[in-house]
Each structure stands twice: as structure tokens, then as C-alpha cells.
Design a protein around this nucleic acid. Structure first.
Lengths: 234, 234
DNA sequence: AAGGGAATAAAACGAATGTTTGATATCTGC
DNA sequence: GCAGATATCAAACATTCGTTTTATTCCCTT
């Protein structure tokens, strides 16, 4: 973001990103956006055609600024050991998601992403190709390097999903986590600690997956074949 | 669930759970529910007071049936090795979330839970205490048993969050995962395989966390103290 | 069989929402 | 300095939504 928004269009985008994120598309009214941006309601339709057009512009705006400020490869250079690259990948993701310079976590635009994961909008398609796919490719290449003898995508893809899943869950279910555990989830000032935890946990997970392909390295290698059936009534 | 719904109240509950899950609270209209349940619109207000009352009833209904069919401790007995208990915990969670006998994943009530994680409703409070807290306590006790020398909740709580996070992300971001990776995410028939993966990954993660408390067991133990600053412009 | 409460149905009401209209203001290039 | 395009504004429109009202039907008890 280059300073405070000045033009009407920018004011609308900033206000809309915040309100869309907090309330969701349907629950957000353009009057509320206009009020928050101190702008006439008709200006929204004038600049963005309709509510959906505004939403699409907001989504692109949010991803653009987020990945511009915190690029996927932030802090990473090719000479680093891949484990270290993974740490920066995770950390940058947390900063992008949760820091106030990024998407501000649950208090703002961060929830837009969660909402898109739940209900992908048409506008999400281009965002996927432009921002998320390269992001995933980078993570996969790091995982290939970490796992040495490449175990193939059928094992590395789920690893990537598990890593991203942890990050997103931490970032987006924060209030529920806090409510259940009674402990605050690390935010803003504790992003480094949180990053390190997920990084350690994930390194251990990757090692277990890559090494334990055969059997025996984990206790009870075939517990899924026990007579427990989900069809049994409790 | 005890057979097909017969009474008007049950018909409304079933239809509402599905539509609320798919569309969200705000985007769901009473008329749409009435149509789907083949019931008059006024019947909804008659039986559930208002839209919020219906939603609260739906939430309780969904959690009750889900945890009745797939209880947290399903398949677990105290004599089992804790690693094995963890497997069943994860597996039961996937079945509850994703199987058609459970919440049906993204195609129905499963998304209600995801929506509540994003925007907790007032009705979610009681559900947290009644269903989710015991669920979390069980997981924690399993983790305590696995980690042997109890490392304390400051390490085990994040482990629990990481495990749950993987499950929920797999379950709820399925279409986006599929779209990005190009591969289908395991569903329905592949829940056992998915459970085993998350189980292995998590066991490795737990081991890394529990063992690596000091330092040195993972490469570059303090990568977060490097000069990389999130304040640097890219 | 009759009476009465519970349940269902159709219609209408008032509030809120996305969008459009037409008038006015502001900026831009010549 | 002025004409034409661009931008902003207040007001109104048509639609949709949750809810209420009122009338009717169903079912159970006496």
C-alpha cells in the first residue's frame, strides 16, 4: 500500500476489503461501504459497475498488495539449506496473513481468503493462477529439496497441504482456538515463535512421511485395517 | 439420524442444515428453506420463532447427530497404545466431517462448522462447551500419553491445533486444493488413506517438537533471528 | 360427536437492499 | 476561458427479505 488512499476508487477499495472480509459478500451492503469510505453510494456502481465487480476488484487488490508486501520467496535465496527456506516460507505466510502490514488476520482482509476457500467466487479463479499456484510451486520445490530422494508428488503434495493447513487454521480460527484452549494464540508480536513451531512440527512430519513409506518405522503400521467400522452404531 | 424426517419440524431442520451450510446464514432465505422442505414459510417462524432461532436449532441438531454417530472416542479403548488412539481420533474426525453418514463434507452440513470457525454465532457457545471441549480434552490426553514425559500444555496445545488444523483444512478447502494441485483430494472411499497420512505426519511432528525442545536436533535452530525483516520493502 | 388447542396455509406489511436516474460539480485539453 | 468528458451527489425505483396476521384444517381428548 502506497500511503493512505486518496482517490475515491482507492477509498472504496480499502473500505470494501475490510467490510467484505469481516461480514462476507452477502452480508455486506454497499451503503455500509459508502458510509465507511465517506463516499456516495452511486460512486460504487459508477466505478465498479455493480457489487460483484467491486468484490472482484477488492480480491485482486488484496492479493496484489499482500503478495507485493510479502512475496512468497521473501527472505529466501537459493543458497540456503532447504529446511531454512521452509522456515522463511512459513514465516512469510504468517506475516502476510496476520500482521497489520499484511492482511491483518481476522481483523480485516485476512478473512477474505478464508471465505474464498469456503465459497470460491468466480473472481477467485484468476487469483489462484496469478498468486497461489506459484506459491504452491515454490513450496513443492522446497519440499523436494528437503526430502532428498524425491518421493514423488503423491507424498509431497499432501505434505504441502498439511503445512498450509496448519498456517491457515492458526491464522483464521484464532478466536475459537483461544476460546477452547484458554490461551491466546500468538499474534503480531509472536509470529516468529508461531512460525518456528509450525516449521519444527512440519519438518518432523515430512521426515516421518518420507522415511516411513515402507512400514515399521511408526508403531502399528496398519491400524486402519482393524475391525472398527464407521458403520457401527455407537 | 433415525430414518427419514417425518414431522414438519424435522423436515425444516434437515433442509435448513443443508442450505445454511451451503449458502451461509445471511445468504439463506426462509423461503428457500420452506420450498426445499416442502413446507409453508410461516411454519418456520411458528416452530422456531425466527431465523436465528432456526439456526441455533440447526447447529445443535448437526453437532448432536454428528457426535452421536461418530463420537470423539470412537474405536478407542484405554488399553491401546496412544499412537494408535491418535489414529482413531483422526480417522473418526475425518469420517464425522466428510462421510455421507456424517456431515457430508463440503456438500452439506460440514461447512456449517467452517462457517462457525470464521464467524462464531451466539449459538456456537453452547456447542463449544458440549461437544468441542471434550473433544479437545481427549486429544490432549492422547498427546500427553504419546509424548511420555509431559512437555506441558505450552507445547502440546499447539500440537493439537496443528493436528486439527490439518484435518479441517483437508476437509473444507477440498475444491481449492483440488484446483491447485490438480489431483483429487481423497474423499469418502479414501478416508482411511487420508487419515493414515495425517496420522503419520502428526506423529513425526509431535516427535520433533517433543524431542527438539533444546536445540540442534533441527538444522539451524534459530533462523527467526536472521536479519530478514518483514518491514523491508521487496 | 363435539370442542379446543396445535399445526398449516395464503396473503400482506414494513424495512432494507442493489441499482438507476437525472442533475450538478470538477477536472482536462485546447 | 470554455466545451466536453469525468466524477459526485441526492433521490427514487423495483425487488426481496423476515415477519406477522388472519383464516382454515388437523388431531386428540372428553
Amino acid at each position: 500500500m502506497t500511503g493512505q488512499p486518496v482517490t475515491t476508487k482507492e477509498k472504496i477499495l480499502e473500505a470494501a476489503a475490510d467490510i467484505f472480509g469481516r461480514e462476507g459478500f452477502k452480508a455486506t451492503t454497499i451503503r455500509r461501504i459508502a458510509e465507511s469510505a465517506q463516499v456516495n453510494v452511486a460512486a460504487i456502481n459508477y466505478h465498479f459497475r455493480d457489487k460483484e465487480g467491486l468484490y472482484a476488484a477488492v480480491l485482486e487488490h488484496v492479493f496484489h498488495t499482500g503478495f507485493a508486501r510479502f512475496p512468497s520467496h521473501g527472505g529466501i535465496d537459493d543458497g540456503m539449506p532447504p529446511e531454512r527456506q521452509l522456515y522463511f516460507f512459513i514465516r512469510t505466510m504468517f506475516y502476510r496473513l496476520l500482521s497489520s502490514e499484511g492482511w491483518g488476520g481476522r481483523h480485516g482482509k485476512g478473512r477474505l481468503i478464508a471465505r474464498e476457500l469456503l465459497d470460491p467466487s468466480p473472481a477467485f479463479e484468476s487469483v489462484l493462477d496469478a498468486y497461489i499456484k506459484p506459491h504452491k510451486e515454490l513450496l513443492l520445490s522446497i519440499l523436494v529439496a528437503i526430502s532428498g530422494r524425491n518421493p514423488g508428488p503423491e507424498l509431497l503434495l499432501p505434505c504441502a497441504v498439511s503445512i498450509i493447513g496448519q498456517c491457515l487454521y492458526y491464522a483464521l480460527a484464532a478466536p475459537v482456538i483461544k476460546r477452547i484452549t484458554g490461551s491466546d494464540v500468538p499474534i503480531e508480536t509472536q509470529l516468529d515463535r508461531l512460525s518456528e513451531f509450525v516449521w519444527r512440527f512440519s519438518l518432523g512430519g515430512i521426515a516421518a512421511i518420507v522415511s516411513g513409506v515402507g512400514a515399521g518405522s511408526v508403531p502399528d503400521p496398519q491400524p486402519h485395517s482393524t475391525p472398527f467400522s464407521p458403520l457401527d452404531e455407537p
